[in-house]
Write a protein that binds this DNA or RNA. Structure first.
Lengths: 333, 333
DNA sequence: TTGTAAGCGTTATCAC
DNA sequence: GTGATAACGCTTACAA
């Protein structure tokens, strides 16, 4: 069943059917009714491929993330998909993992599908080596690229991110103000946002006279049990700490486990802060004080910027906004 | 830059270029090399829309779920996308929410994009009213439909699911065997799998002489705080219970909170089981005993069945397998 | 092994 | 307001 069948049955030309299909006002009501009847009777649906070929777009956007099962990224995917869909765009999802080669391959894969734009969720897509970022710059020559929670300068690249330096500073300040003397920080990897958070933490530590900040940050890329072990080892090695600043809520959940196992009272003896305000912060007992980096706002902003860019309108190449602290029960009153 | 430009530069016909592009062996090595050189020099990429139009497929599959941010569904999306991608299929994601109209609209949206197959994740897509399921049957007339964790009979529909009746029975038996006398069950909604789990629970209760099972199941569709409140209310209303069978790990996390607030020792005074073996079970303190319903296996099975169906091979319309219990610290040794 | 030419099903530009 | 018809860029018989 194609446009010719419909035009034949309705006794009009394919041009008229196409006009009806696309809501042109240059069709008489009578003809329109006639054509619509035939279309409905046959449950006709125009062929998306032919349509795309003519229009050179299928209204699709690519979403690249390392892992759709990560609670934070999953939330971002949810918001992005919702906004895209509300604007009649389909979302093509790709989970790349952390391997650089794979990231490149997946981006090529999306480009080969002629997506109209692509969203990177997470700062780890932006690498410190500019050579490794070339694939993003090249993609941006074809379609607009949006980086959520990360930053990369380049033409046709738009970065939308939370001010993680300020946020990490604020949350570290909060701990000091609640009586913590010796915080430590848990991070995953030295991604762009990871580095910002570490710098914010270190800066505030220094402000409070803690000069050994460099020895108070720990990389925890592995599963929860390893995170706990890292804290155990730090203590065994003689490090004194009475609070944990974690760069995500899962790490914070690890810190909660560490505290409970060692019979440290939360928040009296030991305070913990998470990051992302995810379901994990709410599911933990006690609920974790966390930083809301306004993910929903970030995603809606990104999609509306995409729409603007595709309409050739001007859009800032960098949009940064502040997060806010959500106090729960792992920090003192 | 299109196939004509390449053919002109390489001094061959577009047919030859197409052959090279599609790895035909009917091209001499010399010609192939010549064409590949031109392709690489120009970074030529064939137009996906034209290609799709000719082949009548773009190698895309639709994934429908209610909410990509749900930890369990997010995990399923991750596995499905990975398997699809490994088979050169792109994933088009749609999050429908729970409204029936939306589900229909989203399915139409995917069909209008000419996807090759569609995956429904979650039993709540299958409604008890067969009239409401018609949209799925109709879609199945065009493309194969795969239902994960749900069941619907119909031509070109393939259901892949865990035996939730047996699983819920097993996990309830486990609690009795660990000394629980009075379990209660927490469920979300009366979805297909929800009902199976409830029946399994009730059956085992009866086996153990607990005749008031019907009064021991509670619907908890809302957020965590409400789940806790429901348990509080049950207790205030005089119901005695010493364990909770939850149909997902988030509900189990709510039960953990309830127990801790009421100073019930886990697992000595109060035992809890979750479901799905998700990150929430691992992040909770104590870690939650949970049921692994082999989501990864379910997703890989679904995708390999899709491949087979698209190759016109025979595939069972229903595939059911058993889950297994992962014992952690919310049940006794 | 290579080339010619006919589709694939739309949209859009012209005439009328 | 409507109808021919060219374009979109590829795949694939069929011919050479």
């Amino acid at each position: 069943m194609n446009i010719y069948d419909i035009s034949a049955q309705a006794g009009v030309s394919i041009a008229t059917v196409s006009r009806v299909l696309n809501g042109s006002d240059k069709v008489s009501d009578l003809t329109r009714r006639k054509v619509l009847d035939v279309i409905e009777k046959n449950r006709y649906m125009p062929n998306a491929f032919a349509r795309s070929l003519g229009l050179n777009t299928m209204s699709t956007a690519g979403i690249l993330c390392s892992d759709a099962s990560d609670v934070y990224l999953a939330q971002a995917i949810y918001y992005l998909e919702r906004e895209l869909r509300n604007n009649s765009y389909t979302s093509m999802l790709c989970c790349t993992g952390h391997n650089h080669q794979e990231k490149e391959a997946y981006l090529q894969f999306l480009l080969s599908r002629n997506v109209d734009a692509v969203f990177f969720i997470g700062s780890h897509f932006v690498e410190s080596s500019s050579k490794k970022n070339r694939y993003i710059l090249e993609a941006a020559q074809k379609i607009p690229v949006f980086i959520l929670n990360g930053e990369l300068a380049g033409s046709n690249i738009y970065s939308i991110l939370c001010d993680d330096y300020a946020a990490a500073s604020d949350i570290t300040k909060l701990l000091f103000s609640k009586g913590s003397q010796k915080p430590v920080m848990l991070y995953r990897i030295l991604s762009y946002s990871g580095q910002k958070k570490i710098r914010g933490f270190l800066h505030v530590c220094k402000e409070h006279g803690l000069e050994d900040g460099d020895h108070r940050t720990f990389s925890c890329p592995g599963p929860l049990v390893e995170t706990i072990q890292i804290l155990e080892n730090a203590r065994k090695n003689g490090l004194v700490f009475d609070s944990v600043v974690a760069v995500d809520d899962e790490l914070a959940a690890g810190a909660v486990k560490y505290a409970l196992r060692n019979h440290l009272r939360i928040p009296e003896d030991f305070q913990i802060t998470g990051y992302n305000n995810s379901v994990l912060a709410a599911c933990s007992t006690p609920e974790i004080t966390t930083l809301d980096n306004q993910l929903e706002f970030m995603c809606t902003t990104a999609v509306s910027q995409m729409i603007r860019v595709l309409q050739k309108q001007q859009v800032p190449s960098k949009t940064m906004f502040s997060g806010y602290i959500v106090e729960h029960r792992t920090t003192r009153k």
